[in-house]
Design a protein around this nucleic acid. Structure first.
Lengths: 258, 258
DNA sequence: GACACTTTATGACGCAGCGTCATATTATGA
DNA sequence: TCATAATATGACGCTGCGTCATAAAGTGTC
């Protein structure tokens, strides 16, 4: 049983009604899966349940996704696409290179606070034995998205080097700065998501620490303008207000409800 | 079916022959599980297979571990215990506070390079739906180990503040430094372990980046003595040679084989 | 060593969830 | 209207977890 190409990124290719219907249903399925994930957790995400939610049979779901892992990978791609939009917004911000880079971090953090399951999914997708079950095409798609999002982050670092905000050392540092921030954010959000009792281990809220640490990290690289303790808060609030009004509202509503 | 307390940490309590035999078998089971994990990956780790490997029946395995997740959690505890030994070694090192703290990072990194599966296990254990299946006692045990290892790292930061190597700011920073390093290391090693093609995304080897970034991070906090590009390498080699000879040999042998 | 009784080991069984495939249903087009 | 192709369905096979009635081994007493 084969089915249309079903591109996540609808290229400019002409699409027939069939293809549109198919793409639509694919979205429907993904929405349903996301819902189940958010409302009842990963353990209850079964293909049967997804099928039931969209009122199609299991077989039909399998026409769209070659395995459960494949479906999850698609959710992951969605998430990265979402992040790409956020990153792009941050990069276009009118501010110093450091502000723009920091804004990326805030966006990343907000995205994961709004979609707590995203972190779990990303985490699950990274487990090798899970990866093995994903179709090569979908893995390729995810990889190319990762490529795109990485290059967005790297471009800001390049800008900073270009305009002298970052002292140019002999060694290439673009990758190390991006990797440092990525790993720090990734690690911090995973640690927060998992129900490790950080608080009882003596830690302040992860999101706060993450912001502070990112600034210290950039200070370590002498990324101008250097931060000051008082400047931190101001900058954080400014960037949040200027770039992420919607996200912050969403987050507040979410917290209110629970 | 109940069975003896089976403490992982053999407290000074008098142990009967029975209890000793039981503890021994528990070790046997854990060894077998670890083996399967290392040789054939997570996907093939089934309770049946473990039972077969130790030549006991499945039921007997379940006398020791209430679920598969419980068993994995025990492996995780082992891993943390291993890390505690490494951290302790680092803390006792005769050197500056910064060297000792950095040494912790190196040890953490080495441990995960030697036991690639450790990262995967830790990752798996952090997924909520997995956690739910672990007995509260074992989770408590793990938590207390996490408590211990955290406090070891924190103690070095405290020392540094005490002796003036770290400028004392108004805000408590002990937790933020430890959390920053933890998240950076955790994130970096997870990213490396997962088969994300970091190289093709334009990144240098994760372990190198991790070391550089850790130093930049500590520089950002003004942890004396500040690092210099040339000093990095020297310090790294010195610490590795002085503290982790065994680990490095193990690692080299491992790489030679493959 | 025989017996009663307790403790421990066993693997067949029930169950859940993934993925398949023969069959049923619907769409297309001549 | 009918033939043929495309798609949907859900019963089925399979794997792996965890249970529990039963078997086996151990322990203590005479």
């Amino acid at each position: 049983m084969k089915i249309s190409p079903a591109k996540t990124n609808p290229s400019a290719a002409p699409v027939s009604r069939k293809q549109r219907e198919l793409a639509q249903r694919e979205t429907l399925i993904l929405d349903a899966a996301q819902n189940i994930l958010h409302q009842h957790g990963y353990a209850t995400l079964t293909m049967e349940r997804v099928a039931e939610a969209v009122e199609y049979s299991k077989g039909t779901i399998y026409n769209h996704f070659s395995s459960k892992e494949d479906l999850i990978c698609s959710l992951c791609c969605r998430s990265i696409n979402n992040l790409i939009e956020i990153f792009t917004r941050a990069v276009r911000y009118e501010g110093s290179s450091r502000e723009r880079f920091s804004a990326i971090g805030i966006g990343y953090s907000l995205h994961h606070q709004i979609n707590p399951m995203a972190a779990q999914i990303v985490q699950i997708i990274k487990i090798n034995s899970v990866r093995e079950k994903i179709s090569p095409e979908k893995l390729g798609e995810m990889e190319s998205l990762e490529q795109r999002i990485t290059s967005i982050a790297m471009s800001v670092v390049q800008d900073a080097i270009g305009c002298g905000d970052l002292p140019l050392e002999t060694r290439a540092i673009t990758d190390s700065i991006v990797f440092g921030c990525w790993s720090m954010h990734y690690g911090a959000l995973l640690l927060e998501q998992s129900d490790i009792p950080l608080k009882s281990l003596g830690f302040s809220p992860a999101v706060e620490l993450l912001w502070l640490n990112t600034q210290k990290f950039l200070d370590g690289y002498n990324w101008l303008p250097l931060s000051s303790a008082s400047g931190h808060e101001t900058m954080f609030r400014k960037l949040s207000a200027d770039l992420y009004e919607d996200e912050i509202n969403t987050l507040n509503n979410k917290n209110k409800k629970s």
